[in-house]
């Protein structure tokens, strides 16, 4: 059942008016995204769940510092991103860096056609495989830009980088994603014909 939530500010006002229980609505509303960000960066469900819980507790305790200049979600995602990144610094996660400068010997339309030939589950499997191979920063950008559809301005605020830097990284990421999809599709084709 889809719950119709009020705006974040509505619940924040309630908490400010001594109704702390209203915070449970904010947790419910944002828990999937906060948990997803934590999981994409930490790659471990238990760690991600623990971190997401701590982030919500920390956010509650620091609500007085939230001035409403940006969206509550932007503020919250920034907290979870920083917390998860600082945790990964303690526990180095291995990722494979692809060569971004590989020749663009493919077109989006071709990849699109090949992907559309696959069933939903196969497509999902490829996406999961690609997301697993991204580093924390790339995972975060993908999640914010393609899942949550945040603007580059919001992403720059959440991730603490300039907007032009976000745009450059997104451009590279687009190339990387297409390259990865292309590679996976080629591998699959080879396996079929062998």
């Amino acid at each position: 059942m889809q719950i119709m939530y009020q705006s974040d500010n509505f619940y924040i006002e309630k908490i400010r008016n001594k109704e702390p229980a209203a915070y449970s609505f904010l947790v419910d509303k944002h828990k999937d995204m906060v948990f997803s960000i934590a999981l994409r960066i930490l790659r471990n469900r238990e760690d991600a769940e623990e971190l997401a819980q701590d982030v919500f507790v920390k956010a509650y305790q620091s609500l007085d510092t939230f001035k409403g200049e940006s969206k509550f979600s932007t503020w919250l995602y920034r907290i979870v991103y920083n917390a998860a990144i600082s945790k990964t610094r303690k526990k180095k996660i291995e990722t494979v860096d692809l060569d971004y400068n590989l020749v663009d010997n493919y077109s989006t339309d071709e990849i699109k056609e090949d992907i559309n030939r696959l069933g939903y589950d196969e497509q999902k499997k490829i996406v999961d495989q690609i997301l697993q191979g991204l580093n924390p920063e790339e995972s975060m950008m993908i999640t914010l830009f393609y899942f949550k559809e945040n603007s580059t301005e919001e992403i720059s605020e959440i991730m603490g980088m300039t907007q032009s830097n976000v745009k450059v990284k997104l451009h590279r990421l687009r190339k990387k994603l297409l390259l990865e999809v292309n590679e996976i599709l080629h591998k699959q084709n080879k396996e079929i014909y062998q």
Partner: peptide, 23 residues
């Protein structure tokens, strides 16, 4: 295309009692 494709991976959900634990 990428938005449509990547959104095939569902948003992950924490455990059912997540909100209760946080509260």
């Amino acid at each position: 295309f990428l938005k449509d494709f990547i959104q095939k991976a569902d948003m992950e959900s924490p455990s059912a009692d997540f909100t209760k634990i946080v509260m």
